[in-house]
Simulated scan of single mutants.
Amino acid sequence: MATHLITGAGSGIGASVARRLLERGDDLLLLARDAGRAKELAALHPGARTLVGDLGNPDRLSWAFGQQTMPDRLDSLLHVAGVVELGPIGELTPKAWHFQLNTNLVAPAELTRLLLPQLRAARGHLLFVNSGAGLAAHAEWGAYAASKHGLKALADSLRHEERAHGVRVTSVYPGRTASPMQEKVHRQEGKEYDAARWIDPESVATTLLMALDLPRDAEVNDLTVRPGR
């Protein structure tokens, strides 16, 4: 039975992939920002275990993990959580930059650093759910795109550094996906939200499982997923 740690399992892509992994009998650890959220995740995904650590405050992750029982080995670490705050560069405050860079880039880097020994022990898999914004930046997406461009660089560097340890690294770049985050983006853009226009989170979850389940003689480095409508 494989053991996976997932961030962002409360909704959207993270919730879909967590459910699929549980249904097939895998062991799951779900990262929650606080004890209250941990209870919500445990109720949403019966059978999964929870781990508390706030991605918005990456400086505290090491301390938080030191107070909890950590797994001896991890078959995969799935970085799915993310936040977004749109706005023109000329109006974005340092708070908006830190909000996105901490959660979308610094926290995944720190979480990976803390869990690399367990991933190396299992010759495991690092999987980063990036974004189309990690490949191309557009007006009012500057801070979010910067965090996702940085996430691509993090994954690319790790792929070279961890190959000798047998750790595979995959970046997935979904286009707009039907989720609470996408609904927020539409509100910020002043547009009407229609979930039917965008990728179903289940479709992205299918691509993540494909990358995880690929035999050891190959790995998916980068995978772009776009709406088919």
Rank of each mutant, 00 (worst) to 15 (best):
F99I: 11
S131L: 00
K95A: 15
T112Y: 05
V129T: 00
A122T: 06
L135H: 05
Q100C: 07
V106Y: 09
P88E: 15
A133C: 09
S131N: 06
R123G: 06
V84I: 15
D75S: 10
L116F: 05
V106I: 09
L77K: 04
R123C: 07
L86W: 12
V80Y: 11
L116R: 05
L78Q: 04
A121K: 06
L116W: 02
A136Y: 00
K95M: 13
L126W: 01
I89A: 15
K95W: 14
V129C: 00
N104T: 07
P88G: 15
L119S: 01
V80R: 09
F128M: 00
A96G: 14
G90S: 15
S76Y: 11
V106R: 02
V129L: 07
D75W: 10
Q100T: 03
E85K: 14
L111F: 08
V129A: 04
I89M: 15
A121G: 05
A136R: 06
Q100G: 01
A121I: 08
I89F: 14
G134R: 00
T103A: 07
L114F: 00
P108C: 03
N102D: 13
R120K: 12
L101H: 02
G82Q: 10
L126Q: 01
F128A: 03
F128K: 07
R113N: 05
G124D: 12
E110H: 12
L111R: 00
V80Q: 06
T112G: 09
S76N: 07
L78K: 03
V129F: 01
A133Q: 05
P94G: 14
S76T: 11
G132A: 03
L86A: 14
E110Q: 14
W97M: 03
L105C: 04
N104I: 06
R73E: 08
V129D: 03
L114P: 11
A133D: 04
L114S: 02
L119H: 02
G87P: 13
A81E: 05
R113G: 09
G90D: 13
H125G: 09
H125W: 11
G82F: 10
G87F: 14
R120S: 07
S76D: 12
N130M: 10
L74E: 09
H98S: 13
G87H: 15
V129I: 04
N130W: 05
R73C: 06
A96Y: 10
N102T: 08
R120T: 12
G87W: 13
L119E: 05
P117G: 00
A136I: 08
P88R: 13
I89E: 14
T93R: 13
G87T: 14
L135Y: 00
V84W: 12
E91P: 12
A133I: 08
V129E: 08
L111Q: 04
R123A: 10
V129M: 09
T112P: 01
L116Y: 06
I89Y: 12
T103Y: 06
K95Q: 15
L116G: 02
L114R: 03
R113E: 03
L111P: 04
V129H: 04
A121M: 10
G82N: 11
A81N: 05
T103N: 00
G82D: 08
H98R: 15
V83L: 15
A121H: 08
A81S: 09
E110F: 11
K95I: 15
L126A: 06
H125A: 07
Q118S: 06
